[in-house]
Design a binder for these strands. Sequence first.
DNA 1: TAGGATTCCTACTGGCGAGTATGATCGAGA
DNA 2: TCTCGATCATACTCGCCAGTAGGAATCCTA
Lengths: 245, 245
Amino acid sequence: MNSRRTTAPAAGKNAAPAASPWKASHERQRDREVKRDAVIRAAAREFNRKGYHNTSLDDIAARLEVTKPTVYYYVTSKEQLLFQCFVAGVERIRAAFRDVRGLELPARERLNAVLRRYGEAVASEFGWCMVRAEEQDLSPAMSRHIKALKSEIDHGIRRLIREGVQDGSIQPCDPKMTAFALAGALNWIAHWYREDQSLSGAQIAEAFVAVFETGLSPRTGALPLVAERERPARRTRRAAGAAPR
Amino acid sequence: MNSRRTTAPAAGKNAAPAASPWKASHERQRDREVKRDAVIRAAAREFNRKGYHNTSLDDIAARLEVTKPTVYYYVTSKEQLLFQCFVAGVERIRAAFRDVRGLELPARERLNAVLRRYGEAVASEFGWCMVRAEEQDLSPAMSRHIKALKSEIDHGIRRLIREGVQDGSIQPCDPKMTAFALAGALNWIAHWYREDQSLSGAQIAEAFVAVFETGLSPRTGALPLVAERERPARRTRRAAGAAPR
DNA sequence: TAGGATTCCTACTGGCGAGTATGATCGAGA
DNA sequence: TCTCGATCATACTCGCCAGTAGGAATCCTA
């Protein structure tokens, strides 16, 4: 079946001779990281499909067409695998915070930008692992680490809300509860997105931000652009782009 | 340790002779149901603490100070236990829908009443099981059943949103996405409520409904009553008709 | 007090799956 | 050609846990 990797040997990438005896070592290193990433992504997909506890490392290995010890060659344990998936997802959100930091915009717009990226991250292949990495399934050390990362994000959202209330771009509200509501709605995307991929992650995030912004009770002020008085104009139920996997 | 139940023998409970031979049988029946409920509640608490997969039936039995076969005397399997916990939680939400049905109120108020009850249910001891009962962990039959119940609730929310848009009490919006956002925010309560019980379930639900109603962007219209710059001011108005369980 | 039903326990089975011991294979350098 | 490190497979161990077999105690009815 799998007769070793049939990598095209020495693809033309090194124009320079690169006489360094470490070169091969370097390429090996890179190769290893590529494979390690593949392991983590495969794990994320399997966890996403069947859940952490219902996925065995044999499953993940089979998905990669290797055997279990091979997987253990790249990671030390199953829980580390879950942890890495979590980190991969959460890192995108942290990046979103970094990107808006220092931007000269009202806090609400910065918050919206973060929420959009947040929603996209949750709808990504790592979303499930990100929102479902349970402290109960992990060692105390990793559990603490995950909690810290989650808390960082939570407080980042709260801070943006507070700033928005101060600069007047956000309705006065309780930052803590509001942050919980926003994050909860976005996190939950991971639960239904697998079954209903009629929208892209970005589209969902956009729709959610619109809901958050407007609220349920009718706006009395003039809202010329959002105000389709009709029903939502059955916009392309079952929109395109849903890669049917 | 536990030398059988030391029931005071023949406590004076039957003043009337109650000659019916079925009486004892009835009491047995009731007794059994009480115990079965206790098993389900104990399971819910354990699942809540440690997760479904990290909880063994020995754990649940120990919590009840009995042994595993005793638990199996009241339920047929672990997954049935999870299923029952799910049903117990979701039943409260269905009751909320029944209670507001036919009420002469704007749809937004009916929706708010449902959302409040929804939030309380998620913050209850069954909340965790309700939102985390994974199809992946259950047999196809139970999985279908759970999906149907979830779908019923989802469509109930969508319907109220549509009605609200029609009667003008709710801002025009996409019912599907809005319902996802609302349900997601409320479902997520189960994830953080265990660690932060500084508010009651009702208070949380109230705060969330306030967030949903108002939205993030500042209201331009005159809103003299909500504009308290401080926190959302615990108004426990407890919508009408809500039979408090 | 027998006899049946109910309730619960002790002591097991069987399987699944995380993790490992051991060694085969391959590429590269000496 | 020999060695050495990197990579990966075969074939295990070992513990946990869902579920069960069989029986004992207790209560109800007759």
